[in-house]
Amino acid sequence: MSILVYIDHSDGHIKKQSLEAAAYAAALAAQSNSKADAVILGTPPTDVAVLGNYGIQKAYTVSDAALDSFDSQVYCSVIAQVAEKVAADIIVFSNNANGKAVAPRLSAKLKAGLVAGAIALPDTSNGFVVKKSVFSGKAFANISISSAKKIISVNPNSFGIKTSGTENAVTENITVAVPAAKTKVDAVNKIKGEIPLSEAEIVVSGGRGLKGPENWGMVTELADLLGAATACSRPVADVNWRPHHEHVGQTGLAIAPNLYFAIGISGAIQHLAGVNRSKTIVVINKDPEAPFFKAADYGIVGDAFEVMPKIIEAVKKLKGK
């Protein structure tokens, strides 16, 4: 058995979610007595060797500049060719933006059963069963893959970034046919100076309880102190107190940080659907009946306007600021 992990990169560096996918692939290889290699498309990032830290010794690169722009059809074709050349039977992706676009295509192309959004290593005691989150975080499903070839996309921040080796991954360039893309990337607009919500280990979030956008200082200040991303509930995004990309919940982004710190959010079921995979949930709300307290690990029943300045002071003291 041979495993291939697709490594996504931007701005010359491997994405954090892909390091997690690499660690997953290496752990799967260790579990199944096989080996895991990586595949990297486009101008290679500068930090390929770092994959060694995550248990991957070899990265196949297809360093064709045409692959510096993403197109799901082209990427699918190229990864399929590499998978065939290296005789991979299991292909691992991160379930991030590009993974979500390519993994299903590749599944159809190779007739390889896909588990999208895996949160644990496969259980191979009876077949090949992979656990994933379903019903928007309200349940888990154990999915059995019956095809010979298999694809797993790993949900960001669910497996953990485990290091298991030294920084010694080597690259080998592979030449495959790169078809012409039918879509063209016209512009890329990254949100600057902020930690992307999907990658953040800590998220500080505000809801309608904060009464207006002018009161968001406490959210952003705490986020800055903790190196956290900021988020908000749907009503807040709907009235444009905060930008739409900050909306977490059923119809917004689903996240799984180590700490989700919710201020003035009641915790409607639709909001919980986007955050209930967070490892620790803190809720600050003045309504003791707020449903969020039932899903929380820590809470304060109190007025955010009185409580938050003291919390910020205590965090400053903790951080030595």
Partner: peptide, 11 residues
Amino acid sequence: EIDGGEETDKA
């Protein structure tokens, strides 16, 4: 939507 931003594509 891409990780941490947006991308405009033409097709």
